[in-house]
Design a protein around this nucleic acid. Structure first.
Lengths: 338, 338
DNA sequence: ACTGGCACTCGCGTGCGAAGAGTGCCAGGG
DNA sequence: CCCTGGCACTCTTCGCACGCGAGTGCCAGT
């Protein structure tokens, strides 16, 4: 359908536009890339590309800029993923290795991604769905109050206050804690409900109220924390959006504050590799002039969460994809080690 | 030194400028506020105020705008704190009461502050300095590895991995945990170091290495977590900064990402009440065109952390101060209850 | 199928003039 | 002595016309 040279022209347009942020004309193209043809020929190709909807001109007598569809073709067929250089890899690894706990890993990952890509970075905390329970702790806080602490194998810790229906002794709590752990330690979150179902039966009738309150709080925590948290950074890079950034930045900032939106965004990417959503491909309206590059990462073979960056559609796709992929890989390694 | 009427003129200028975001002239002033004098008189007053450095004109033959010094005078002498209305208070209380844990309290507070003030909200997590240890937990993770979990009375939980010099049995860990808790539970963070100093002596020589590793990790956590965390929100409100916001927004975003900067900023405010730092009063350069309104909050009488908002110097000070104070008060209540 | 040439379209920067807002100052009046 | 009305002056802003330059589309020629 599209001749080889026309594709080359499209690639050149994308590359130039990404570099200069200005509509690119036929003459400039032939000068900067040796396509072996004259501007006039390129003009014809451009007209064809425009007919197909891959490029557009902001106004008559201006150069062309790629459309979302143009970027899509570029990403899918015309450009690969630019791998990181060896020094870059080393830097990534070194930087991530200094982390002291899970929060720190995530925080460092965000910083790193934002710095490497010079865009807004979004990192989802490792998911609990695939996680297993490392330990459950139960602490007396007041006569009829306890604190439930859940520790996962990814190093995440969640706590909840439990208001008991009746005063409860420390011994009972310790007993419950022991039984609870013997049942759920090392098990998957999804298996926990069925494992603790009959637990109240082992207790005195007057204690059962407390026991089931604790259990329901635990189950609640497991579910609730599946609603993932995430961390974002590098928002200052939003100023890189281009000359019209004042108009674009507000909806983007608003979208970034809506964790639900972002989680949905990351969640949609089912691809095993790097996923790119360009402009209007993003469901959320505020992100219609941004592209999202995301990828899953995980401590083992399985992806437990996603990370990615949000930037202008006019971005360096190969480089960004390379950085995102590399960071995901190394974060996975770090998580596997700890 | 400054006559009563001149102060009124300054107040009027601040109010008008905050409302319209445009330099205010003598004629407009006399029309919108009934000062009982003519524009000519106001002009003389303005000239005097300008000589004293309270107002300035962006260019000749434009109206006047307040300087940082002008805002300072306004905040100190000319305006009070505008209290929240009863419905607003109820809304605040209702919104905060839905929180399920500490993270949620902080998250809700940020949202609330950002919404009420229509500015960027910053909330520091409750400090550990004044806190006491509720419980210390020690969990075996691998033969020579354990997880240390610290729970504070403010409901905060911190965890750290501990790499032991030698393999350690579960019994030893349990023993250490029991002794540790009996010594430090309920004590202030600052007292912990001296309380655990001689703890290794009670153990077998070959276990002492492990014990002191655990202890030093604990002490490290206590110190490190004094470097507070904080949460920010409402960054989309940065677009409200004014017509020149494209220039201002970048350094502000950068400053907001530097937690250290923000912590220092909040930390500087020693005032028991609401503190306002205007424009160049902020040490950080990027925040030179912003004002920071902050206040301490706490679960008891003592302030354990700070919260506040960052906005343009051109802000509604009485309203913002009122909102910040009210939110701090209610957050304190919520924390005291939990 | 590519190329060179040419006429045409627009956006953008510049310069100028009119309009408007606001000021500073001065002389007069309570 | 302080306030007021009036007046001349200063600047910014806006609208408009103009010319320049970049870029295009089309066509005839090779």
């Amino acid at each position: 359908m599209l001749s080889e040279r026309r594709l080359q022209v499209l690639r050149a347009i994308v590359q130039d536009y990404v570099g200069t942020e200005e509509p690119v004309g036929s003459k400039a193209l032939t000068e900067r890339h040796n396509l072996g043809v004259s501007p006039a020929t390129v003009r014809n190709d451009m007209a064809a590309l425009e007919d197909e909807g891959f490029i557009a001109q902001p106004h008559t007598s201006a150069g062309r800029i790629p459309t979302d569809k143009g970027y899509r073709l570029f990403v899918d067929k015309l450009a690969g993923v630019k791998p990181m250089t060896a020094p870059e890899r080393r830097a990534i690894q070194n930087f991530l290795e200094g982390a002291v706990d899970l929060d720190d890993v995530v925080a460092r990952t965000v910083r790193l991604l934002a710095q490497l890509t010079r865009q807004v970075a979004v990192v989802q905390y490792p998911s609990l769905t695939r996680s297993t329970v490392r330990h459950v702790e139960l602490l007396p806080m007041a006569p009829a109050r306890a604190m439930l602490v859940l520790i996962t194998d990814t190093g995440r810790v969640e706590q909840r206050m439990v208001d008991c229906p009746a005063p409860v002794g420390e011994a009972t709590l310790a007993d419950l804690r022991a039984r609870l752990n013997s049942r759920v330690a090392g098990r998957r979150f999804t298996d926990v409900p069925s494992l603790v179902e009959d637990l109240p039966e082992g207790f005195d009738p007057e204690e059962r109220g407390t026991v089931s309150t604790v259990l329901s709080t635990l189950l609640e925590t497991l579910v609730e924390e599946n609603e993932e948290r995430l961390m974002i950074g590098g928002t200052a890079n939003l100023t890189r959006f281009g000359h019209d950034f004042p108009l674009v930045i507000r909806p983007v900032l608003e979208a970034l504050e809506e964790q639900v939106v972002l989680l949905k965004l990351l969640g949609e990417a089912k691809d095993p590799g790097v996923t790119v959503r360009i402009g209007h491909e993003n469901a959320h309206e505020g992100l219609n002039s941004t592209s999202v590059v995301s990828v899953g990462y995980g401590s083992g073979g399985e992806a437990v969460a996603k990370l990615g960056v949000v930037g202008p559609t006019r971005m360096d796709y190969p480089g960004t994809m390379g950085a995102v992929r590399a960071v995901a890989r190394y974060v996975g390694q770090i998580l596997a080690e700890s």
